[in-house]
Every structure is written in structure tokens, then in C-alpha cells.
Computed example of a mutant assay.
Amino acid sequence: MTIVILCRGKCGLSKCITVYLLAMALADLLVLIFNVVLYEMNEIYFPDSFLDYTPICSLNLFLIFACVECSVWLTVAFTFDRFVAICCQKIRTQYCTYKTAVVIVTTISGLSILENIPIYFTLEPRIIIDNIPWFCDVKSSSYTIPMWVTYIWIDIALMPFIPFILILMFNGLTVRYILLSSKIRKGLRSSGSDPEIENRRKSIILLLVISGSFILLWMVTFIHYICAQITEVQYLHTDYNNPFTIMEQAGYMLQHLSSCTNTIIYAVSQTKFREEFKTLLKYPLAIILRLANYLKRKYVQN
């Protein structure tokens, strides 16, 4: 629904912002499709289906990691775009444009795919039945071979360690700029309400919610990543009595929730978006009422 509403272009948002929000919504939707529907729900409701063949399972996991990384870095890119728009007046007109947004979204999407290709080759069959490989496990060599260990640490740095730092830094600088400019504005206006101050206060709240939501929902996954590197803990274990397995699965659950909240925080906070959302919800009901009235008139005429 978010994608449909944004494509209609009636939310009063610039083309630059719309590109970022559309890309974020699409990336989050792909995370929910590949991760929740094709992986988690398949494991619970359709066990031993063709999706559990090792090649298909490996491809699905690769797509999951690529989509999650794309979603995270799109959030960083949009945070930086808002930082430039608010704090960097000199380069705002050159950077915050439709073409720049398209280039950045395309680049992030391509790099996310390329960076996660090695994931496919770190997986092996859990079991082989009648020469058919089933399920996916991380190869034990991935924890010992220096090349794979280096890759995993780089992957942890790219997601979510560096995004943590960048989102905190950009939002922190943005909040500081807003507070300083608001203080100056209050000094110039001796009395009376100021709509601009109220808008800036809402911007600070929005930025704090964005940073807090992202960090809290990714913290468990981040801690598990670190534990897996400094201990003998392995990924994708099925022993649900193991505390590290519970931590891993809880982290994935919160990570899925993060894919649901990003678009809501950015888009639903817009008044015109909420109006379009209500209109979209009422549209099917309006069609049904028109159809009912048309059938009623036909019945009366007959």
C-alpha cells in the first residue's frame, strides 16, 4: 500500500524523497517476502518442500542477506540526504535531486547484491537423501579459513556496525543544527508562537525515533554476530534449547520488525500520506457501494 500511495505522487513530497521512500519500501517488502514467507513460514508450515533443496535454500539466503543489507544502507542514504537538506545549505540544491537519488539507490542495490554473493558459497547441505542435498548449514571452514573469517568481519562491519555509527552521527548533527538554529530564532522572536519551531521539534522527535528504532531492533543480531566470531557458536543451528540459537532467532525476529517500521516512521509521519492512506482504504468500499447502487437501480427499472 505504501508503494502504491507513493507512486500516485499526491503526498506533497519531492521526487528525491519519493525515490528513497519507494526504494526503502520495496527493499523492506522483499525482505518480508524472501525472509518471512519463503524462509520462516516455509520452515513452519511447509517443511521438506522444494524450497528446502540446498541450491534453492542457498539462493534464498543470499537474497535475504542482499535485501536486508540494501534496506539498511538505503536507510543510511536517506538519513544522509536529510542531513544535507537541513544542515548543508550550500550543496543542498546539487545533492538533493531526483537524479542523485536514483544513482545512489541503484548503486546501493548493486553493491548489496555483489557483496553478498560469497554467502551462497559458505553454505553446504545439512543432509543428503538419495543423492539430493537438503537444507543449508554454514560450512565449518567458514570459521577457520582466514579469507572467510575476514569476509564475515567485513560483512559485520558493513551491517550493522557502520550503519549504527553513521545514522547516529548524521542524526546527531542534524538535531544539533536544529537546536542551535531554533535557539537563535527564539532570541530574535521575543514572544508569540512560532510554527517553524514546532516543525523543528517534530523533526527532532522523528530523527530520534528513527535512530532509536533501528539500533534497538538490530542490537540483538549485532551482539550475536560478535559472539559467533569470538566463540565456537555457529549460525543457523536448529537446537532451540541453545541460548545462542534463541538469541539468533530473536535477533532475526526483531530484524524483520525493523523492515516493517522504517517505512511507517518515514511515510506515515506525513499528514498528506495519512490522507492518501485513508482514501486508499475507502476506495474498495466506494466501488462496492457504487456497484450496489447500480444493481439497485437496474432492479427497480426491471
Rank of each mutant, 00 (worst) to 15 (best):
T261C: 06
S142E: 10
L63A: 15
F46K: 00
V149L: 10
C67F: 14
C57H: 07
L38A: 07
K298W: 09
I119S: 00
Y95H: 05
T279M: 09
L206T: 08
Y45N: 00
V149C: 12
I127K: 07
Y240P: 04
V37C: 08
T75Q: 15
L254T: 15
L257S: 06
A101W: 06
L254H: 07
L63M: 15
S259Q: 03
L32A: 13
K272V: 05
N131C: 06
L206E: 09
L59Y: 01
R185L: 12
N42G: 01
I5H: 03
P243F: 06
I64Q: 01
L29W: 03
C227D: 14
K10P: 01
P284W: 08
Y45P: 02
L188A: 09
V233Q: 13
V233Y: 11
G212M: 07
P195D: 05
M247L: 15
R185C: 06
I215W: 06
Q301Y: 07
V138F: 10
T122A: 12
D239F: 06
T279P: 00
R8H: 09
I127S: 08
A228W: 10
Y95K: 05
Y283P: 00
C70D: 06
Y151H: 08
L114F: 14
G212D: 03
Y151A: 05
K278S: 07
R290N: 11
P47W: 00
L6T: 01
K296A: 11
R201S: 11
Y53P: 02
M219A: 15
L173Q: 08
V220W: 11
L281G: 07
K272E: 15
R201K: 11
A66D: 00
A157H: 03
T261P: 02
